[in-house]
Design a protein around this nucleic acid. Structure first.
Lengths: 171, 171
DNA sequence: TCCGCTCACTACGATCATGAAAGTGATCTC
DNA sequence: GAGATCACTTTCATGATCGTAGTGAGCGGA
């Protein structure tokens, strides 16, 4: 019987098509384990960005060649879906697929680690507390929002805006 | 008021010592956002590895120079603690600090994403189900185990062994 | 229709990181 | 003392990244 998720495949009848192992952690790292990929996912989830130029404008200043490479890799990995904008045919939209939406729990844990660890974090303490108090609920809200084309922080119908409105109504 | 965790720091009195931004996600990615760092953490948490040679022997075949660089970076980041082995002075132990233990939730989510996404995953389905059913509980078990020098999968007193024993006793 | 602008990239050269293999010195075992 | 083991280091070819400057398609206003 399997002793763990990353046991060797030596001697296994299953041939490895590509990649270093069938460990699920390694699988994830091969798909988005670099310093840039998850920033694109973050931009979509938290800030509602969708286009090349918007990703490029992020504070962390990714180079266009690197951004193009990451978008292509994540599209190939089934995390992103590329679609032309019919209204403005210069534009291309990148949306998260269901597989991409499934990265939201990873993103939330990563954000919590960073916020807890970085003494100079830019994350607001009250929001961190909110997420910590009801992680599953917040992940569900995030996921629903992004699926509907909204975002966590940007826009009148963002998750943050709705939470603020609910608080105001309750008192 | 802060609109989100990654707002620009332009014009802020806070000077950025290093790094691309104060976004907590970016902070995490700068500390361990590469294809190798989390594999070392995985080796510690899931397999109870602690030494250079053990990390080097992993299926994914990291190069020694890269491993040395990652260990140093994670030690500097406060994720790992480096300590000489008093019994065998050739050996050096790498243990997770509390900050490193706090990465376990990230690792668990990453593993779940990989296991769900990879059709040829090496992760056993029953274990994935177990983690999904009680994520917070399993993270607590993992953390306690690693803190005590045990691991998730390897050893007589691993988390998996204890779960199996509890199951056998209950029925 | 022309002009300038925006869009999603691509091209390029310098610099940086990685991969593979071999080597080093300290230390342990026999 | 010989040989193995340990944690690295070195070297070098190859590949990735950074920063900047295009490029061509498409839009919007005059």
């Amino acid at each position: 019987m399997a002793v763990g998720p990353c046991e060797s495949t030596e001697g296994s009848p299953v041939k490895r098509a590509s990649g270093r192992s069938h460990c699920p952690i390694n699988f994830g790292l091969e798909a988005f384990g670099d310093p840039w990929s998850l920033l694109v996912v973050r931009d979509i989830v938290y800030f509602g960005k969708r286009t090349f130029a918007e990703f490029l404008a992020s504070e962390e200043a990714i180079a266009p060649s690197v951004l193009a490479a990451r978008l292509e890799r994540m599209t190939t990995a089934g995390i992103l879906r590329r679609s032309p904008d019919l209204a403005d045919r210069r534009r291309v939209r990148y949306d998260l697929t269901e597989r991409g939406l499934a990265l939201i729990p990873v993103l939330v844990e990563l954000a919590e680690w960073g916020a807890t660890t970085d003494p100079a974090t830019g994350a607001p303490a009250d929001w961190i507390a909110l997420v910590r108090a009801d992680k599953a609920g917040m992940v569900a809200r995030y996921t629903e929002a992004v699926r509907e084309g909204r975002s966590v922080f940007v826009g009148d119908d963002s998750v943050a805006a709705r939470v603020a409105a609910a608080r105001a109504a309750t008192g």
